[in-house]
Computed example of a mutant assay.
Amino acid sequence: MAEGNSKPQPAVWTTVRPFVNGGLSGMLATCVIQPIDMVKVRIQLGQGSASQVTKNMLANEGFGSFYKGLSAGLLRQATYTTARLGSFRVLTNKAVEANDGKPLPLLQKAAIGLTAGAIGASVGSPADLALIRMQADATLPAAQRRNYKNAFHALYRIVADEGVLALWKGAGPTVVRAMSLNMGMLASYDQSVELFRDSLGLGEVSTVVGASAVSGFFASACSLPFDYVKTQIQKMQPDANGKYPYTGSLDCAMKTLKSGGPFKFYTGFPVYCVRIAPHVMMTWIFLNQIQKLEKSIGL
Rank of each mutant, 00 (worst) to 15 (best):
Met179Leu: 04
Ala160Thr: 09
Asp239Asn: 15
Ser220Val: 05
Ser223Ala: 12
Lys149Thr: 15
Tyr156Arg: 12
Asp161Arg: 12
Ile158Tyr: 00
Ala151Tyr: 02
Gly203Pro: 02
Val175Pro: 01
Ala221Glu: 09
Met183Gln: 05
Leu186Ile: 01
Lys169Thr: 14
Val175Thr: 08
Asn182Tyr: 10
Ala166Trp: 01
Ala171Ser: 14
Pro238Met: 11
Gln234Val: 07
Lys243Gln: 13
Tyr228Asp: 08
Asp161Val: 00
Leu195Val: 09
Asp190Lys: 04
Met236Ala: 04
Pro238Ile: 11
Val164Arg: 09
Leu224Asp: 04
Gln234Tyr: 00
Ser199Asn: 14
Tyr156Asn: 11
Leu167Tyr: 06
Arg157His: 14
Asn147Lys: 15
Ser220His: 05
Asp198Ala: 13
Leu186Trp: 01
Val164Lys: 06
Gly163Pro: 04
Pro238Gly: 12
Ser223Asn: 06
Ala166Glu: 14
Arg145His: 01
Leu181Asn: 13
Ala211Glu: 10
Gly172Lys: 11
Ser220Met: 09
Arg146Leu: 15
Asn182Thr: 09
Leu181Thr: 10
Arg157Met: 15
His153Gly: 11
Lys235Leu: 02
Gln191Ser: 14
Ala160Tyr: 03
Val175Cys: 01
Ser188Asp: 06
Lys243Val: 14
Val209Cys: 06
Ala211Trp: 06
Asn182Cys: 12
His153Met: 06
Leu200Asp: 04
Val214Glu: 07
Ala178Val: 00
Leu186Thr: 02
Ser199Gln: 15
Glu162Leu: 12
Gly163Cys: 10
Leu200Pro: 03
Tyr228Trp: 08
